[in-house]
Design a protein around this nucleic acid. Sequence first.
DNA 1: AACGCGACCTGCGAGC
DNA 2: TGCTCGCAGGTCGCGT
Length: 317
Amino acid sequence: MPELPEVEVVRRGLARWVRGRTITSVDILDPRSIRRHALGPEDFAGNLEHATVLDVVRRGKFLWMPLAMEGTPAHEPGTGVALMAHLGMSGQLLMQDPHVPDEKHLKVRLRLSEADGMPEQLRFVDQRIFGGLFVTSLVPTADGGPGGLAEAPLPEIAGEAAHIARDPLDPHFSFEDFYRKLKSRRTGLKRALLDQGIISGIGNIYADEALWRARLHYARATDTLRRADALRVVEAAREVMSDALAAGGTSFDSLYVNVNGDSGYFARSLDAYGRTGQPCRRCAEAGLAGVIKREQFMNRSSHTCPVCQPRPRNGRW
DNA sequence: AACGCGACCTGCGAGC
DNA sequence: TGCTCGCAGGTCGCGT
């Protein structure tokens, strides 16, 4: 479900509800959701109980909450601990009141210290269990911290997110760094867009949308890509994701943190993804007959208009 | 070293 | 009705 806009919606919503609150108890309903916590469920819960959430930050699709541990008065840079969350394909982080029945796929429940008018539980719900939670250490970074969208970025990052590149909405995103990495790879453009070490936050939907907007084919060889083309595809990704973020942002005031990127709200704005067999909007406007087609690529679906995104010959142009 | 595939999971709708 | 198949927005690790 979640790509960058959805994760950022969750981050913003969550920050409002949990910052400054203390975790009082932890229920692990399905240990598979914390399998990335190598030391097991007891250690996971033990680390979280009595810890206070300092903030909610993000790098790409990785989301984490730096914690102040009980009895540790000052936060020493480089010694921090955080609760890491990745939503995978179907993860949700929901703020709920205790009387709300457990969700069918509720995996982990955190009870929080009482706060005026705020829900008492943070619940991790995940159908497919590709996502998960774990406790991790923060490591120092010289690059300015997690992501520029955090209100108060700390100069440290979760180790598991250190290899993740910045996303195109991050104020510290560097087109030059992106272009350099792109040119150094021998691969297809969509594969590169989905590589979180080259550019982060883009998943299958927004990759297809960005390529459609930039009129580029997914198999275009990255090492031959001209600067203007690379710029166009990054700008397209930035635009489509910030539009989606704006749409998702409308649910900020609901009681729980909305993760429902599939609520259909932004789906209507998509031009390529999921429009198999329907006329390409750009072609229709120009009086052309392009029809969006779906192909298997990297074991997943790719949606393109064969008229305005022609397949490159020899992976070139 | 980098790439690319399979594994990790559950549930839904289509087709038989 | 009930089975099987294909499909779903992500990431990691291993083999090449």
